[in-house]
Design a protein around this nucleic acid. Sequence first.
DNA 1: CCGTATCCCTCCGGATACTG
DNA 2: CAGTATCCGGAGGGATACGG
Lengths: 116, 116
Amino acid sequence: MPSDCRSVNEILARVGDKWSVLVVSLLGDGAMRFSELRRLIGGISQKMLTTTLRGLERDGFVTRTVTPTIPPRVDYELTSLGRDLLVPVRALGDWARHNRSRVEKARARFDQMAKS
Amino acid sequence: MPSDCRSVNEILARVGDKWSVLVVSLLGDGAMRFSELRRLIGGISQKMLTTTLRGLERDGFVTRTVTPTIPPRVDYELTSLGRDLLVPVRALGDWARHNRSRVEKARARFDQMAKS
DNA sequence: CCGTATCCCTCCGGATACTG
DNA sequence: CAGTATCCGGAGGGATACGG
């Protein structure tokens, strides 16, 4: 089925980008505001966090709620679609954790062979 | 757990790149040679297919078997690790197929709002 | 048939500085 | 606090040509 390859690829592209999965996972524990996410993630730039959240919002995975106080407050929360997505994403994450050493060993062997 | 974030990210990066998942899925139906993969995928350049296969081989997901005939013949096959990976990857693929329309609708709505 | 090398271009993502 | 604008380096990935 080449027809739905594109749509599958689009989802995988989201999943594969540098921050989306991490953000979705964190929001899986409940709604959070921008600065909380930024602090918890640690190594992300302001720009990329904004970009990532916009993408997730666009695809319907998170909602964005602005409270126009001073200073402003913005909360992000998973939609039901986002919580749905969390299921297969977590499965993949668990797989990665369980098999990390196998992959690392394979890499070490491969790189060893290549050094000749 | 920030410790295993890196390893998880590495797997997700593989999954998220443009061709790896497609190649692994195709090899899920059995061993194939280079030109078969190339023909079935359709839109991939020779360079990227080689690169993708090398990466998958390095991580221990596929084996590469050269038959030094003339012309040469090279077969690729999933390892047990590769077949393992197929399970969560297929789950994610199924999810993408089932929810494609929800995502598309969310995008259409978002883009509509943004046009104002 | 299979792989490498080269060129080139796009886009991701970080750093920084500035608005409301 | 949250977001935008700008600049910039580098990786990803396509086209082409060549080698074994």
